[in-house]
Design a binder for these strands. Sequence first.
DNA 1: ATACCTGCAAAGGCTTTGCGGTTCG
DNA 2: CGAACCGCAAAGCCTTTGCAGGTAT
Lengths: 154, 154
Amino acid sequence: MTAILICMESKERMINNFIEKCRKAGLKITPQRVAVYEILLSSKNHPTVEEIYEEVKKRYPFVSLATVYRTVETLEQMGLAKKVCYWGSSARYDANTEKHHHLICVSCGAIKDIYLSKDLDIPPELEGFTTEGYSVNVYGLCPECRKKKAEKAS
Amino acid sequence: MTAILICMESKERMINNFIEKCRKAGLKITPQRVAVYEILLSSKNHPTVEEIYEEVKKRYPFVSLATVYRTVETLEQMGLAKKVCYWGSSARYDANTEKHHHLICVSCGAIKDIYLSKDLDIPPELEGFTTEGYSVNVYGLCPECRKKKAEKAS
DNA sequence: ATACCTGCAAAGGCTTTGCGGTTCG
DNA sequence: CGAACCGCAAAGCCTTTGCAGGTAT
């Protein structure tokens, strides 16, 4: 209960921050934009653009897929979302801006956030590159896909 | 000099191993296939399919892009190459089968292999997933892009 | 001889773009 | 009012696929 309240309060704060940032950047605050960001914030599944689109359509049935594509790109440029692209054909988006990593199902492409107990020690310069950060991807099979494989085998 | 000799010897061994594996799997050994694998082995740049295709075309002008796509997929299934997909639109391939990680330029997308001194300790089960491995991506700016940025700033 | 493979061209997904009308500030 | 944005449809990439002819074993 408490967790949910905190979470929702935080979400609202994130959205206000987003609106504020839009104002400063001269970007208009449209219902579609806010909806995309809100859905991305609420989602724990790193949705594809298509999935976000389906959600937005529940509120704004006439929204277009192109708008969702344009909005997630805007969010990425604002630093409020990240594009994650691993296996599958379509990119997924992530509005979690905390430092975290990903656990990825090699069969269906599902992504789950994970947190490492220790930071890696990456030197600020490596092979001539100046480094800015890192991400760890752990690959595996999600419970659903494991079940499916077991059924097939039998 | 020695390094080059060792490297070439190793490449030949890799190709022989590939041919052997093909035989065992009932796959035919065609010039195009061998060329794709050899180019991938020789390349230090994690080339795109298009780039491999251009190289193969120098030896076999009538090769088709579809063949290269099919071959890299075969190589991936055989465990001799990995698909890597980060920023750009097109996938890149990597025939380095040693355990290694990637240093990626966030500006131009260049990829360099890096090796970690310590392994991460990833449990075999995590969040319900069975884990199979992990990869670390370090993001940064390559020397060329850093230079370009410095020039722009001045 | 017969799988398997190739080249070609067409189709398939995902994503981007151009345009006219609309909406936010 | 004007700039920014939206929906629609078309176009653009990258990648996959079906097919008929060719090649390796």
